[in-house]
Design a protein around this nucleic acid. Structure first.
Lengths: 151, 151
DNA sequence: AGTTGACTTGAACCCTTGTTCAAGTTTGAC
DNA sequence: GTCAAACTTGAACAAGGGTTCAAGTCAACT
């Protein structure tokens, strides 16, 4: 039979994968990116503390919200060494994430409204239309804006 | 001096790039992807019709909304050969894009609400928390869910 | 005709979030 | 001690949306 440590306090990557539903490849990837950590056995295999299960849950939940792994990593880095996220931690992170979500929703609503306006005016000017050129990336040296439609 | 066709009805890639604020590399990329088209000179250089300026505006505006280039391409493919987008075209596309935006906004709002709930309950179960496991990807063979927090 | 800036190409590279593969090693139950 | 399952690694690939580079060609002005 295969090695299945019965009551160990540490878990293998296979067990973590099975319990979390996250493929082992993704777990290794998270580890490479510094999101989770493991101890190594004498034979160089990973052993995870049980807290990591909660960390992975946090990673997945945050990721499903569209938070980039790098940002999730920054948040997790603030945890004390190898600790599971406490309720306080979760609450603090949740504020950031909620703010993020709200900002994203607002941005989309803005764009939708601007878009609707643009349909009305039919401009799509490279210089003046915030939709075409949101960051004002154009220097603004050219003659005049022009219209999208001949009509 | 460099070649700058004074009053030509066709424009070079450099001119298109300058007028649109879109790097030439991106314009070539769009062309490879079939979003825009060009005639070639005897010397194999691109020459664009002026309509393409409006098409590029349309591409950028749509892209800033988060519409993938492939979808924008599908929309543009419905234009009659080398035509600039008409008001009708714009109106039709706008319906699609608006629907897209509204769907995205709703999805974000749903997630935000679920997230807020989750903060309240502190569960983050791999099996039951829609936030951790939105697609119900886990088979559901394991014992019980557990809590994220020790508290 | 010469100069020089603008143009051409394909290939390689960037980021993100992973998956898949091959080849070899460890672990643990029997 | 044996055996198979589980583990290890690095590299290559994916998609999306491009950028940058090298090496060479073209176009326009003088």
């Amino acid at each position: 039979m295969a090695p299945v440590p019965a009551q160990a306090t540490e878990i293998t990557i296979g067990e973590l994968s099975e319990r979390s539903g996250v493929p082992a490849s993704a777990l290794r990837f998270y580890e490479r990116k510094g999101l989770i950590r493991s101890r190594r056995t004498a034979g160089n295999q990973r052993r995870y503390r049980r807290e990591v299960l909660r960390q992975v849950a946090f990673i997945r939940a945050s990721h499903h919200l569209g938070i980039p792994l790098s940002v999730i990593g920054d948040a997790l880095a603030k945890l004390p060494e190898g600790q599971a996220p406490t309720r306080e931690f979760w609450a603090r992170a949740s504020e950031c994430w909620s703010a993020e979500l709200n900002a994203r929703i607002k941005r989309l609503e803005n764009m939708r409204d601007r878009f609707t306006e643009c349909i009305g005016c039919g401009c799509l000017s490279f210089e003046q239309c915030g939709l075409v050129n949101p960051g004002d990336q154009l220097g603004g040296k050219r003659s005049g804006p022009y219209r999208l439609f001949d009509a």
